[in-house]
């Protein structure tokens, strides 16, 4: 197949990896899967579009404001929907309901704030979605930027987990109570993680907007593929998520060129299943310590 396919696959894959990373950041200290993550991404896109396109703010200012706004919303979510559940019982699955409820609330609120109209978001100058030829592939400077930003973010976040604060996050992930004994405050870490995860989700939305357009329908499909990337990469592992994002993007692109939509889904699923059967904890995931 041609190289254009690869460009599309890597761009889409980068976005999936970013969604997965948002998942992972929240998951690490809380062991919670945020079912409202797709809505956070969508809200990021909508806030970005509002600030950048409708209010005409500079791209970076608009993106920063969108990240701040969504991060704040994610923090609110953590405070009202996650922390109380974890306080009741760290192993309860109550968060399934509470994060779904938050998703329901977001989904019904956006309709009040925004119409169903997709809003165009222009990439920041000098980037552009106009393509040029590079090594025989048509690629735009914006696509390159999305790929580079994704890789940088992943490496940055992974580097953070190597630091003292990062290790604290991992310690909380392993055992909340034990971490508490070691002087780590898991609740503060949870809050921070939601704040950051919200910010990453918003950035994902803002970055996706010039490609997928900012619309209130943006969330669900990205949520699913982001979840897939997170799982295939090994839940909690961002480098894995990046690779898994690329793989899913690539399989999807190749399938799109060759198969009808129903079988495209089946093909993506088959690849996902095959990877997980060979590596049950994802590409880079580790098995938990032996139980006996």
């Amino acid at each position: 197949m041609d190289l254009d396919l690869l460009v599309g696959a890597l761009t889409a894959g980068s976005l999936y990896a970013l969604v997965a990373m948002g998942f992972n950041i929240l998951y690490r200290p809380t062991n919670v899967f945020n079912f409202a993550q797709g809505d956070l991404v969508m809200l990021g896109a909508m806030f970005g579009a509002t600030f950048i396109t409708l209010l005409g703010l500079p791209w970076f200012v608009g993106a920063a404001l969108a990240m701040l706004a969504v991060a704040a919303l994610a923090l609110v979510e953590e405070k009202i929907a996650v922390a109380p559940v974890l306080k009741n019982s760290a192993s309860s699955h109550g968060w399934v309901i509470t994060t779904l409820a938050v998703s329901m609330i977001f989904a019904n609120l956006v309709g009040l704030g925004w119409g169903p109209d997709p809003i165009a978001v222009r990439p920041p100058a000098p980037l552009s979605t106009d393509t040029f030829e590079l090594f025989g592939a048509n690629i735009s400077s914006y696509q390159i930027a999305v790929m580079v930003i994704t890789v940088v973010l992943v490496l940055g976040v992974e580097a953070f987990y190597g630091t003292r604060s990062g290790k604290a996050v991992l310690a909380v992930a392993e055992d909340r109570d034990a971490a508490l004994l070691r002087g780590i405050n898991p609740n503060r870490l949870s809050s921070w993680s939601f704040f950051l995860g919200g910010g990453v989700a918003a950035l994902t939305g803002v970055l996706a907007a010039p490609v997928l357009y900012a619309s209130t329908g943006l969330g669900p499909s990205l949520l699913l593929k982001g979840f897939a990337a997170a799982a295939v990469g090994g839940i909690g592992n961002n480098r894995g998520a990046l690779l898994a994002g690329y793989i899913i993007g690539l399989v999807e692109a190749v399938a799109a060129a060759l198969l009808s939509p129903g079988y495209q889904l089946a093909a993506t699923f088959a690849v996902m299943l095959a990877i997980l059967l060979v590596r049950p904890h994802g590409l880079f995931g580790r098995a938990e310590a032996r139980a006996v």
């Binding site: 704030g113 109209d117 329908g217």
Partner: peptide, 19 residues
Amino acid sequence: SKRPPFGLRRDGSIDRRDF
């Protein structure tokens, strides 16, 4: 389609009074 089939408004917010 499952997505909103018609994009309708360009200017984001809905007029509150009208709403």
